[in-house]
């Protein structure tokens, strides 16, 4: 390749990547611009910064108890994510390290549950929550998400990269299996946990249909439910909707940026 074609190739690479990056980020910019514009300007597609930001924030804060719904979402997402990571990493480790014919069957059965659309499970789940007396509690939202087939699969794949020499050495030293898991596996797999944390936190934060069904009172609602309710009024105030959308996006963005380095490392580990 001569210098000219190389430069041309580089130009196209950067141009293409630049365009893709711009397209990916643009809706976020649009959202931030929207939050500063009036409802009518947003629907008209105005590009640019407006002066209605404070009005929009005020409109949003007066119709919604913002700290409460925000806290509800954070609480649900954190508890669900923590429990999911514990349960799924135990299972992923267990399935990979202690192999047996019966456990492989259980594992296949678990993977099969991925195929069933959630809408089909809602009515049976709701009846169950009613019997358990959990309707309108945050536990009803959290419990069905903890046993996640996808995250178990992810941990099992990542465990394949966990060096078996470490385990053998620990066994020789007389460590119990749960000690090996807790004292060696968990610290070594930090970045795997980080990647899983981001994925599970995002899923839990954006969970919409199921919380909608089981949460009944205003005091229990999450931010996602609030955005949806604001956006579907007869005469929606899109300025307030944009402010609420920013608030609904912010925590996942923060989690992602804080844990980004570990996230990429964790992903690399999972596909080895």
């Amino acid at each position: 390749m001569d210098r000219f074609t190389r430069a041309l190739a580089a130009f196209f690479t950067y141009a293409f990547l630049g365009i893709m990056a711009f397209l990916s980020v643009f809706p976020f910019i649009w959202m931030v611009m929207g939050a500063t514009n009036t409802s009518i300007d947003i629907v008209k597609g105005k590009v640019g910064i407006g002066s209605a930001l404070m009005d929009n924030i005020r409109a949003f804060a007066t119709t919604v108890d913002v700290p409460l719904v925000f806290w509800n979402s954070i609480k649900i997402a954190l508890i669900a994510t923590a429990l999911t990571l514990i349960v799924a990493s135990l299972a992923g480790y267990g399935f990979e390290v202690f192999r047996s014919k019966y456990r492989e069957r259980v594992y296949s059965a678990i993977l099969l549950t991925l195929m069933v659309p959630f809408a089909a499970l809602m009515i049976p789940l709701f009846i169950m929550m009613g019997k358990l007396g959990l309707i309108d509690t945050h536990w009803a939202v959290i419990l069905p998400t903890i046993g996640s087939a996808f995250v178990i699969f992810y941990f099992r794949q990542s465990t394949k990269a966990f060096p078996s020499e470490l385990r053998d050495a620990a066994r020789v030293d007389g460590l119990k299996e749960w000690q090996i898991f807790l004292l060696i596996y968990v610290p070594v797999m930090r970045s795997t946990y980080a990647a899983a944390f981001i994925i599970v936190f995002m899923a839990s934060w954006n969970n919409y249909l199921w919380p909608l069904i089981v949460l009944q009172s205003n005091e229990m609602k999450t931010i996602t439910l609030v955005v949806s309710s604001l956006a579907s009024a007869y005469y929606p105030d899109f300025g307030a909707v944009m402010v609420s959308a920013i608030l609904a996006t912010l925590p996942t963005l923060i989690v992602f940026f804080v844990m980004q380095r570990q996230f990429v490392q964790g992903m690399i580990g999972s596909v080895k």
Binding site: V87, L90, G94, F95, V97, R99, T113, L143, G147, E177
Partner: peptide
């Protein structure tokens, strides 16, 4: 025994909150 101990919480949760509703539907 250790194997079952590690996978039990997940298997239990999925059994109750996924498999049972799937059979019900």
């Amino acid at each position: 025994i250790n194997g079952w101990f590690f996978v039990a919480p997940a298997a239990l949760l999925i059994g109750v909150f996924m498999v049972y509703p799937i059979l019900y539907s």
